[in-house]
Simulated scan of single mutants.
Amino acid sequence: MDEMVFFNPGDAIANSRDFGEAVRGAQIYKAKDPYESSLIIAEDATNKKSFAVYFATDEKSSVKDTDKSVVPYHIKKKI
């Protein structure tokens, strides 16, 4: 899955340089509250060695050129 999405980095639940660690963090968080929104593990489009976990509801569908608070990511996994 290599869909481009946008998130505000301040909304991240977890950050990691290791994909497996990011997935484990998301699974632990999801186990605490399974009825919470879906989680997305995303790879920073500008830094291929950085992964972040976000709520799917925090995804920004469109970005204005003047909005510097959002960063492009590639979706790697949804939980």
Score class of each variant (00 low, 15 high):
40 I>H: 11
1 M>S: 13
18 D>P: 02
12 A>D: 04
4 M>V: 09
54 Y>G: 08
36 E>A: 15
34 P>Q: 09
37 S>Y: 09
69 S>G: 05
73 Y>D: 06
64 K>L: 14
30 K>I: 07
16 S>N: 08
48 K>T: 00
6 F>N: 06
46 T>K: 04
23 V>E: 10
25 G>T: 11
41 I>F: 00
5 V>L: 05
14 A>H: 11
39 L>A: 08
8 N>W: 00
55 F>L: 15
24 R>H: 09
62 S>Y: 08
49 K>D: 08
40 I>D: 12
77 K>Q: 15
39 L>R: 07
58 D>T: 09
51 F>V: 07
72 P>L: 04
5 V>W: 06
14 A>V: 05
49 K>T: 11
21 E>W: 04
29 Y>Q: 10
23 V>G: 01
45 A>Y: 01
75 I>R: 10
60 K>A: 00
25 G>N: 13
42 A>C: 11
28 I>L: 02
36 E>D: 15
20 G>R: 14
52 A>I: 04
9 P>Y: 03
7 F>S: 03
42 A>Y: 03
18 D>W: 00
38 S>H: 12
9 P>E: 01
2 D>L: 03
29 Y>W: 14
5 V>H: 07
59 E>S: 10
63 V>W: 04
9 P>R: 06
41 I>N: 05
74 H>W: 11
9 P>Q: 02
5 V>Y: 01
13 I>G: 03
69 S>K: 06
79 I>N: 02
23 V>A: 10
7 F>T: 01
14 A>I: 05
65 D>K: 15
28 I>V: 12
1 M>E: 12
5 V>N: 04
60 K>M: 03
56 A>N: 13
43 E>K: 11
60 K>Y: 01
29 Y>C: 08
65 D>Q: 14
67 D>K: 00
28 I>W: 00
54 Y>E: 08
55 F>D: 12
39 L>M: 09
65 D>I: 10
28 I>D: 04
69 S>C: 00
75 I>D: 09
31 A>M: 00
62 S>H: 06
7 F>M: 02
